[in-house]
C-alpha cells in the first residue's frame, strides 16, 4: 500500500553541504531499497530557527516528498533519529489531505459553473466581470482585536 508522505528535516548549521547531500543520498537509497520513490526534493537552504534547539540558532531545511509504505517511513524516521546532525525532522502523510483538497476544488468549480449556466452566463468568469468592493476595504479589520479583549 503506497502512500504519499512529506518529510522535512533540519540539519545542524555546522554540517557541511557534502553532509547534507550525503544524507539525501542515504535517504534515497533507503527509499529505493524498500521500493518507494522520491517525488520531489526541495532544499530551503539555511533559515533562522524560531527558537533555539540545543544552542543552534539556524538550520538547513530539506523537504522530500516520498511515495512509499509506512514501514519505509518508519525506517527513515528511525535513521534520522540516530543521526546527530539532524536536529529536527517531521514526517507527515499527505495523500488523503490532498485528495480532499482536490475534491473540494472540483466541487466548487462545478457548482459555480452550473449556477452560472443556470443564470444564462458562460460557465467561466470573464475578465473584468463581477463587482469587487472597495479594494482597500477588503482586509483592513480582519485581524482587528475585538473589544472584548480590552
Amino acid at each position: 500500500m503506497n502512500r504519499k508522505y512529506e518529510l522535512v528535516y533540519v540539519v545542524s548549521p555546522e554540517a557541511s553541504d557534502e553532509q547534507v547531500t550525503e544524507l539525501h543520498t542515504q535517504i534515497e537509497s533507503t527509499v529505493q531499497k524498500m521500493n518507494g520513490q522520491i517525488e520531489k526534493t526541495e532544499n530551503w537552504g539555511r533559515r533562522k530557527l524560531a527558537y533555539e534547539i540545543g544552542r543552534h540558532k539556524e538550520g538547513t531545511y530539506v523537504l522530500e516528498v516520498i511515495n512509499g509504505t509506512g514501514d519505509l517511513m518508519k525506517e527513515i524516521d528511525r535513521r534520522l533519529k540516530v543521526i546527530d546532525y539532524v536536529i529536527r525532522h517531521l514526517v507527515v502523510r499527505v495523500d488523503e489531505e490532498q485528495g480532499v483538497v482536490e475534491r473540494t476544488k472540483v466541487r466548487r468549480t462545478d457548482t459555480s459553473r452550473r449556477r452560472r449556466v443556470a443564470r444564462g452566463l458562460p460557465p467561466d468568469r470573464q475578465p473584468g466581470e463581477g463587482q469587487r468592493g472597495d479594494p482597500d476595504d477588503d482586509r483592513d479589520d480582519r485581524f482587528d482585536m475585538g473589544e472584548e479583549l480590552r
Binding site: 522535512v8 533559515r47 524560531a50 534547539i53 538550520g59 531545511y61 529536527r88
Partner: peptide, 11 residues
C-alpha cells in the same frame, strides 16, 4: 503545531 515542531514558528 507542525510548523512549531520544525521551529518555523515559535512556541
Amino acid at each position: 503545531m507542525r510548523a512549531r515542531q520544525l521551529a518555523l514558528i515559535p512556541y
